[in-house]
Write a protein that binds this DNA or RNA. Structure first.
Lengths: 153, 153
DNA sequence: TGGATACTTGACTAATTTAGTCGGGATTAT
DNA sequence: ATAATCCCGACTAAATTAGTCAAGTATCCA
C-alpha cells in the first residue's frame, strides 16, 4: 500500500474538512492554500471524493465543501481503498478487490500466506482509524487553537 | 507496499532456489518453466538479485543460480526493500528510505503518525520471515514430495 | 437582472514506472 | 570447437501519476 501524492492530498483535505466540520462549507482555495496543494488538482480530487460520497459541495459565491458523513463514520481504510485500490500487497489476498493469481492452488501458496498476514496487518492498522480520530490526534499533538484553520495538517 | 509483477517473480524464484538449496545450481530456464515466468524477464531479475547479493551464479553449460546466503539469513523485508523500495506507505516514515515531506512539522502531523503505525505493522509482518521459513510453509502446506521441483510455489 | 464567485466536467499533457523483449557477448563442460 | 548457459545494455509499449486547462453551471447579492 503505497500512498500516492493524490492520496496524500485527499487525506489532508478530508482532515481539514474534519477539523472544520459543521454546517458551513470550506472553499477549495482555502484548503489548497493552507495545504500547499495545486488548486486545479485539488478540484479534481474533491470531485472524486464527492462522487464517492465522502464529501458534499455547495456551488456559487458562498460555495465550498464539507464532509457528507459524520467524521467518526469515515475510516481511513475506506478512503484509501477508494483512492488507491486494494490495501493488500497482491490481488489474491484482497477482500475488496480480489483477483485470482496465476498459481495453481492458492490455498497451498506460501507467498500468499505471508501476504495474507501483511494485508491483515495493514487493514487492522487502518480500519479502526476514522477522520474523527485523526482530528483528535491533531488536537493532542498541537494543543488547543483559537482558529481551527491554524492547525497544521 | 504493493508488490509488482517483477517483485512477485523474484520472490517465487528465490523460493524455488530455497527449496533446492545446496551446492548445486538451478537453471533460469527451469525456474521460468516451473513458475510460468518469461525467461528473458527472469534473467533480468536474477541478475539484479545477484548484484544485490541474494544469489550467486555459475556460467556455462552446467550453469545456473543458487542462493548466496543461507535461506535462514534472507528476510522477506530485505528482499522486498531491494525490489520495491520502501515498505512504508509514505517516505517520511520510512527508516531505510526516509524522505522529508512538505509538511511544516513532522512531529505534529497526524497523518504521519497513522502511517508510522502502518509501516510498523508491515515491517513486523515481514522482517521475521525468511526464505527458510517460506520453505517450511511450503512443506507444511503441501506435505513431503520426492522431487523438490514438484512443489508448487 | 447581471456580475462575480465557486464548483463541474471532460479532455489534454509530460514524466515516470512497469513489464517485458532483443541482440549479441562472455564463460564453461564436454 | 561447440553448445549450453549466464551477462549486459539498449529498446519498447502500455499503464500510471501528477498535474493543467477551457468552458460550463449554479448561487449569491446588489
Amino acid at each position: 500500500m503505497k500512498l500516492s501524492q493524490r492520496g496524500e492530498y485527499a487525506l489532508r483535505a478530508l482532515l481539514v474538512l474534519g477539523m472544520n466540520h459543521g454546517p458551513e462549507v470550506v472553499r477549495i482555495r482555502d484548503i489548497a492554500q493552507q495545504q500547499n496543494i495545486p488548486r486545479r488538482f485539488l478540484e479534481q480530487i474533491l470531485n472524486d471524493l464527492k462522487s464517492a460520497g465522502f464529501v458534499q459541495s455547495r456551488r456559487g459565491v458562498a460555495g465550498g465543501y464539507r464532509l457528507q458523513r459524520d467524521p467518526a463514520e469515515i475510516s481511513l481504510a475506506d478512503i484509501i481503498r477508494h483512492l488507491e485500490g486494494p490495501l493488500a500487497p497482491v490481488g489474491c489476498v484482497s477482500v475488496n478487490y480480489y483477483q485470482r493469481c496465476s498459481c495453481p492452488d492458492e490455498a497451498k501458496c506460501a507467498i500468499r500466506s505471508v501476504m495474507q498476514e501483511v494485508r491483515d496487518a495493514i487493514v487492522s492498522a487502518l480500519e479502526g482509524v476514522t477522520v474523527s480520530h485523526l482530528c483528535d490526534r491533531v488536537r493532542d499533538l498541537q494543543g488547543p487553537m483559537d482558529n481551527p484553520l491554524d492547525y497544521i495538517i
